[in-house]
Amino acid sequence: MVINVLNHVPFCFSTEQGDTIRALVEEKLAYNEFVTVSFSGVSEVTSSFINSAFVALLNSYNIKFIKSHIRFVSVSKQVSDMLRRCFDNAQKEHLPPVVA
């Protein structure tokens, strides 16, 4: 299953546009299917978009599941940097509690 983001949203800019993409991804993940997300033609994305489209999936799935079920292809340098930044930042927030 390939989701070409520009087929569904005009820009990768707002939280609402991110929500649209997340709904499509979640439909597939719910059935344990693999998803390829293509950023072909997208030169830049905001943190709001990435957080809403993909990082919010951490509320339902763990990072291991997300990494094994989602591929991001045709990503520009800026898109790649923002994906990394947002997931790194979110994982700091989702660190499991430490038992001392």
Binding site: T15, S48, N51, N89, A90
Partner: peptide, 9 residues
């Protein structure tokens, strides 16, 4: 201010 904000901007 929005649930998905992570403080990147």
């Amino acid at each position: 201010s929005h649930p998905n904000n992570m403080g990147i901007g």
